[in-house]
Design a protein around this nucleic acid. Structure first.
Lengths: 207, 207
DNA sequence: TCCGTTCTTGAATCATTACTCAACAACACT
DNA sequence: AGTGTTGTTGAGTAATGATTCAAGAACGGA
């Protein structure tokens, strides 16, 4: 499928990964409907023709941005957990770390999770995006579930614990924490909340 | 400021409360940006002129709808709690009841909370709505806080418990529960999650 | 230098957006 | 019935929405 020696194409001038990163930032901050093509053009520094040639549509761009966001989040979780021998302690610190992250203002485009924002914005209007968000959240639940399964096998958890069920409780904690963070609570209160959520896991630990 | 006996006005033909109820349903289901004036006209069975004469603007209508939603939610909480001697048991059943409510499909326009949907959709685009949502959530936190304060005075809670802090944990549980419900989990799993959240409160109970 | 291919450009397109207003309708009172 | 006030109507407006496409620009190889 190579061009047979004559007339090699012009290479793209934009940086696809850079553009996607900018798209994540904009969508994360303003949402799907809140981000107009004009704003997207400005954020990506691309003209409409290039955007449509590259990503197909606004939906296509949003979908790719969402995927990229989810992959980055998954990598971040894996990286974090790699630093812990104890799964439970790793997850507890993960919750505390999220709370702290919501504290440092102006770093992330939004405190709430882009996947949750997508789910809530698109649930009754945009079937495709809603399903994508649901699939991503299902995969994250699965990751948590595997971590907790492993923890149970290592004797960190009570034998009565259902890893899938606890994974959902954990996921809902993160959803709640990052959503309530949009209330602009004082930093100390948010960190306390992260701590309280971390302590919930203590009840599931083996004695 | 009464009209001096001559020429009394035509009374409104629509039912303001009915219209507001329909607006709540539409906005709750589709969000702010997802609800066009055309859809609003259809839902309220009112023509644009009447809508603007009555509510001022789309923002004004949304704002009133949000207020109405919050008042209904507050009344529902008060009504629920009136049936309990124990505050903690009341709140635990409240969580379980929310989970069950997310189960009965097609009853509510959306499982997620309209206030949270508003907060997430408007946080970086629509300052007025965002502030209103924050104020409402602050008032709800306050209600929980007072209930928990009362519970502590009655000796239901450990003395070390900070009611405000626990109120925020409780509010974040509800946010998480109703948000994750948009994932369309099986009914049993959602009810289990509601139960797990209710059990979190056990750790704060006096022995 | 010229060619062929691909990428970029941005004015133009058509749909939809929130919103207005002049004309009309309906009622309570005399 | 007549009158004054207010409610209702819906075609119309100006702005903005996402998207297209013909023309030109940039490069590697001949």
């Amino acid at each position: 499928m190579t061009t047979d020696g004559i007339g090699m194409p012009r290479p793209p001038s934009y940086d696809r990964e850079y553009a996607l990163g900018r798209a994540v930032s904009l969508f994360w901050k303003k949402g799907y409907h809140g981000s107009s093509m004009k704003q997207i053009e400005q954020a990506l520094d691309m003209r409409p023709g290039s955007i449509y040639a590259t990503f197909g549509s606004k939906d296509g761009l949003y979908s790719e941005a969402l995927t990229r966001y989810a992959e980055a989040g998954g990598a971040e979780l894996a990286e974090h957990m790699a630093g812990y021998d104890s799964v439970i302690e790793g997850l507890q610190d993960y919750l505390r770390r999220i709370a702290q992250g919501c504290t440092r203002k102006g770093v992330a485009p939004s405190r709430a999770c882009l996947i949750v924002k997508t789910l809530l914005e698109s649930s009754n209007t945009h079937a495709g995006l809603s399903e994508q968000a649901q699939a991503i959240l299902g995969a994250i639940e699965q990751s948590f579930s595997e971590l907790l399964e492993q923890a149970r096998e290592y004797g960190e958890l009570k034998e009565s614990v259902d890893p899938g069920r606890l994974a959902r409780l954990l996921q809902s904690q993160i959803m709640g924490l990052r959503s309530i963070a949009e209330r602009n609570l004082p930093d100390a209160e948010l960190e306390d909340l992260g701590d309280d959520m971390a302590r919930i896991l203590d009840a599931y630990r083996a004695d």
